[in-house]
């Protein structure tokens, strides 16, 4: 032991520890405050992301191949089911178009340029996922050059999956709603019941055991039933209004019995995400 902790070694160990924690604290602070990481980090990430696609694309293609084989197995049954829905979808789509154009005209008359429901989207494919049990992060192949910036909401499949946590020039990192970092899932959401009454609030947590999002501290008396759809409310000004989050799974009292706690079943499974859509609010 005497030899191991010689003077020089001890100094090196202490310096390494200080540098290690200094760097970590620094990068966490930058990540929380700044819109983009330092240029060096951005450049490094771009280069690594480019090199990584050499491995990522073949693996993703392989996964796509396996997925399509397994999808082929139940394609027939799915087809039967989907045929029934197609006719309805066409109807809804036409109605949606009419309403959208009407909305546009009305906005023009009101001289309203863009409201919270106007957003454009950028599609990206997922390169990799952080190999860590603590950070549920995806790396996607679009960045600043495609118009992505920090804190934009990210959708996949049916609904919201997370937000952009770090932007580089050609790739960016997406923190999933299931991430253990507390700030990752604070989205302003609203629930409207059948009577047209609305409850506003934010997502306050993620329950790993059941895979449900939690909307805490709801003091509103409005009655919310199971199965009601939950959407983003657009309050806060970064997230557009009307992104689908999920359905209400159950409503309970919180620990003190004063406020309600609403559990939301997310619309998308956070595993097996290949294509994502980043929503950008028009302004």
């Amino acid at each position: 032991m005497q030899k191991f902790f010689s003077n020089r070694r001890l100094v090196i160990i202490v310096v390494a520890l200080v540098v290690c924690f200094g760097l970590m604290a620094g990068s966490v602070a930058i990540r929380n405050k700044k819109a983009t990481p330092p240029v060096v980090q951005q450049f490094g990430n771009d280069v690594v992301g480019f090199a990584g696609s050499v491995v990522a694309y073949p693996v993703n293609a392989l996964q796509g191949g396996f997925d399509s084989v397994s999808e082929l197995m139940n394609a027939y049954q799915e087809n039967q089911l989907l045929k029934k829905q197609v006719s309805e979808v066409a109807q809804v789509k036409v109605r949606d178009q009419t309403l959208a154009s009407e909305n546009k005209q009305l906005k023009k008359q009101l001289k309203l340029n863009n409201s919270l429901t106007d957003y454009s989207t950028v599609s990206a494919s997922v390169l990799t996922r952080t190999p860590s049990s603590w950070q549920n992060q995806l790396v996607i192949n679009k960045g600043q050059t495609a118009g992505i910036s920090k804190n934009m909401p990210v959708l996949s499949g049916a609904g919201l999956i997370g937000r952009v946590a770090e932007v580089n020039k050609t790739n960016s990192k997406v923190e999933l709603l299931s991430d253990s970092d507390e700030s990752s899932n604070r989205f302003a959401i609203q629930i409207t019941n059948k009577q047209g009454k609305t409850v506003n609030g934010i997502i306050t947590g993620y329950q790993k055991a059941t895979g449900e999002l939690v909307m805490g501290q709801v003091t509103s008396k409005v009655k919310i039933t199971k199965g009601t759809k939950v959407i983003t409310s657009g309050l806060g000004g970064v997230t557009p209004k009307g992104l689908y989050v999920g359905k209400v799974a159950r409503v309970t009292k919180d620990d003190y019995g004063l406020a309600k706690k609403i559990y939301i079943k997310p619309a998308t499974n956070y595993d097996n995400i290949n294509i994502v859509t980043v929503a950008e609010l028009n302004s």
Binding site: C20, M24, S27, Q41, G44, N45, Q137, V139
Partner: peptide
């Protein structure tokens, strides 16, 4: 650190 976690300073040591 750079590419996967975004928090520099842990795995490099």
């Amino acid at each position: 650190d750079l590419y996967y976690s975004g928090i520099i300073g842990l795995f490099m040591f």
